[in-house]
């Protein structure tokens, strides 16, 4: 059936949780692209056939015309599905900039295709230059603040870090009482967690 593969691509998108990313399905994607080009070949040959019979392409309503319309509409549908697939993935990828930071962990990067990786990097740079124009870091303070300080537990050996005017050593499993804005970048990268008693 025309257009089924493309809709499967979208179903894949709809089935995953919001904000979650599945691996880029390049097999299905390439097949849909191939389908598009086949539709186009059929469409062109039908149009040629109408023209060869010396009929007016604008007003003819024979079986060839309707065949051509079906190919045209299938092609458009496929295009919409492909674009929706790419666009929605790109949106999720761009939202990662806010959640994870400018560098994506390996397991996410494996799920992207080349163009998506590039898109993420460029988008990340765009946000960066907007922030430096404003001289304000927008990636911290993602949730409304309750207390200026939070208690955190270090999950990874981070080492000596300079925070404000003093430096502290963040060794694995150690507990610290830090300023929320200082701790947030570490938390979003999974190197720290908020310690709740």
């Amino acid at each position: 059936m025309y257009g089924r593969r493309a809709s499967q691509l979208l179903r894949e998108l709809a089935c995953s949780e919001t904000g979650q990313l599945t691996a880029f399905n390049s097999d299905a994607f390439d097949q849909v692209i191939k389908e598009c080009n086949e539709h186009n070949l059929q469409l062109q040959s039908l149009i040629r056939k109408i023209e060869d019979e010396n009929l007016d392409i604008q007003t003819t309503r024979n079986e060839d015309h309707f065949g051509a319309v079906i190919h045209h509409l299938s092609l458009i549908r496929n295009k919409r599905c492909l674009m929706a697939y790419m666009y929605n993935r790109a949106e999720t990828i761009q939202s990662l900039r806010w959640k994870v930071g400018p560098v994506l962990p390996q397991e996410i990067q494996e799920k992207l295709n080349y163009s998506e990786e590039e898109c993420f990097k460029n988008h990340s740079a765009a946000i960066q230059s907007y922030m430096s124009e404003l001289d304000l870091d927008l990636t911290v303070d993602m949730v409304p603040p309750k207390d200026p300080y939070i208690r955190v537990r270090v999950l990874d050996d981070i080492g000596e870090v300079c925070l404000g005017d003093h430096s502290i050593s963040l060794t694995k499993h150690s507990l610290h009482f830090l300023r929320r804005t200082d701790a947030e970048p570490f938390i979003s990268q999974g190197m720290m967690e908020e310690f709740l008693e």
Binding site: I76, M83, M86, Y87, A90, S115, C119, N122
Partner: peptide, 18 residues
């Protein structure tokens, strides 16, 4: 950025007119 991304991954591979 978005235009370039969609261009190189989808649009450039579609037939002329689409």
């Amino acid at each position: 950025i978005m235009e370039k991304h969609l261009e190189q991954s989808v649009l450039s591979r579609l037939p002329y007119g689409y």
